[in-house]
Design a protein around this nucleic acid. Structure first.
Lengths: 331, 331
DNA sequence: CTGAAAGCGCTTACAG
DNA sequence: CTGAAAGCGCTTACAG
């Protein structure tokens, strides 16, 4: 246990611990001469302030909580990358809170509060408006700012960073309709995610405008299970276009279509969302909506730092641009 | 700020704060009657102990640090999943430390120490034996146990959870050699990872045994850059088999081979490592070494809890089993 | 510009 | 079985 404390530094520098503390936190309040002396001792002794003690005394932990459901989703991992990079710039640490379905929301939120984080980034998109209200309530009463990252809520009081998923859903559908496709399916997830609801809305709007009936097919996100679900398509259904709410769903569907003798893109065009590695590793390469997930993470972390430092923020609802990357799976 | 403290509980229950503390930490030392009374008040008031204050007083934060380089790597994300699940069972929180190349190792380690974590899981595999020594030194002098997860070090004092990558590299190479392939390439990464060094060693051993010259080709991990690197293969080189140290590399290579008129698996067989989604979404499906990354995360977290609680651990070097999943990319 | 002192919200010997 | 008190390592008014 090599624990150099602030007392050791104060002793060696022949100042009080208050002065050592000031050198670290308000250096401008200390005479240059003493400041330099203290700094020298700090270096010599290899002193690092105990983050926990500081947290208790100052009531600031410089730690943000990041709430996620499933780390293994590529979008979540990418957001974490953006969050982590910006957090490092601002000297914030990251505490991870993984939420399982079987956990009580309020309970979990109270746990996060007890952890004394200075702010929260909420990436867990599996939530209803009721949950949103609960999140607002708990964090508000505890004075903890939070930001939704790639989670959409129509509540204008909720700080949020995302893309316009409704628009994206509309645009990708239009792309296929403009190619004279009529039987356009949307392959969505069985679980309701806030972002997928928006994609579905955009898709439905485009279909309605074209006088077509929306056809939403819900499947598990699991690649292995998809096969059985999807195989029914090619016997029973007329289909000439499909949009997967995730690239992995789209690629998986495309593979099965090809196994069933469909030519992509001649017989069937396919598009996805997220523009992940899957889109590039599939054959044919997948047309996809590029969602800047890294940026969503980075921007939401930056927004959170402003909120934590009480800066008056002009816009707490940030919509990042997206675009369609056209590849060989569409014409 | 709705901050219920231990004083509030003590007051309402008409006991001292010491008793409230005991109810939470050593319930058996409190008479049932008072225990129940205190528990009732705790619930009524919605009291949650301030984790930071507890950390300072007890010198235990019930937090583990997880050191990673790149969260977006599928294996890292999967390990995090395993770590997080087990951490939740044992009531540990997770603090994430992302390491960038430009950061000084010793400095970062000191930062982690200052964060007062009770233990560290080290997933960052980009390290030399010199770094390993430094890690040992810093954590030892501070009494912080640590475990390498999916990072290999030959130092027997270092707690580690991994698979036998050398053996896996050997086996997958043998699989291809036994299929009468002669020109077997290993597609590795430009950056040296400890695990990839082992794969290379196993590959080389199998090649040497067969009287063949090892042919290791180093490429960037970046899917986009691979194309240029790989395209030279089909004009200059004799090749009838390739092993990618990651599935994504193998799939990317396979796609380019097919674009160059190669039939997989007739002309060329391809295999990968990790058995990720890529292996299933590629056409043909990729033969791959299944690495139980989730389990590596879970087991390393469990090992760490034992180390943190000074349990005498029989084996600090755990090798998990792997196996080859044969699919259409090999015969 | 600097120091003495109180306090952050807990835990933990020590008495009784 | 329970309480009074010291202490964990800092920060921050308050004086001077």
């Amino acid at each position: 246990m090599s624990n150099v404390t602030i007392y050791d530094v104060a002793g060696a520098a022949k100042v009080s611990l208050a002065t050592v503390s000031r050198v670290l936190n308000n250096p401008e309040k200390v005479k240059e001469e003493t400041r330099l002396r203290v700094l020298k001792i700090i270096k010599e002794l290899g002193y690092r302030p105990n983050v926990i003690a500081r947290g208790l005394a100052s009531r600031k932990t410089t730690t943000v909580g990041v709430v996620i459901s499933d780390v293994t989703r590529a979008s979540v991992a990418a957001m974490l990358g953006g969050i982590s990079d910006i957090a490092q710039n601002y000297n914030y640490s990251i505490k991870l809170f993984a939420i399982r379905e079987d956990m009580d929301v309020t309970d979990t939120l109270q746990d996060i509060v007890a952890e004394q984080v200075d702010g929260v980034l909420y990436l867990n998109d599996e939530l209803s408006e009721k949950h949103v209200d609960e999140i607002k309530r708990v964090f508000h009463t505890n004075g903890i700012p939070f930001v939704f990252a790639n989670v959409v809520s129509d509540d204008n009081e909720v700080p949020m960073v995302s893309i316009d998923y409704e628009k994206a859903g509309y645009e990708i559908t239009r792309l296929l309709l403009d190619d004279n496709r009529k039987d356009v399916y949307l392959l969505s997830t069985a679980r309701r995610y806030s972002v997928n609801d928006k994609k579905e809305a955009g898709y439905s709007r485009a279909m309605a405008e074209a006088g077509l009936e929306p056809m939403i097919f819900r499947t598990s996100g699991d690649t292995n299970i998809n096969r059985q679900h999807f195989s029914t398509f090619f016997s029973d259904k007329k289909i000439d276009a499909a949009i997967g709410v995730r690239d992995s769903i789209a690629v998986s569907f495309m593979n099965i279509a090809r196994d069933n003798g469909k030519d992509v893109p001649a017989d069937l065009v396919v598009a996805g969302f997220q523009n992940t590695k899957y889109a590039l590793l599939s054959r044919p390469n997948l047309t996809s909506i590029d969602v800047p997930v890294y940026d969503i993470g980075a921007v939401s972390m930056r927004l959170l730092t402003k909120l934590m430092n009480q800066h008056d923020v002009d816009n707490i609802r940030i919509i990042l641009p997206h675009y369609i990357v056209k590849r060989q799976s569409t014409t």
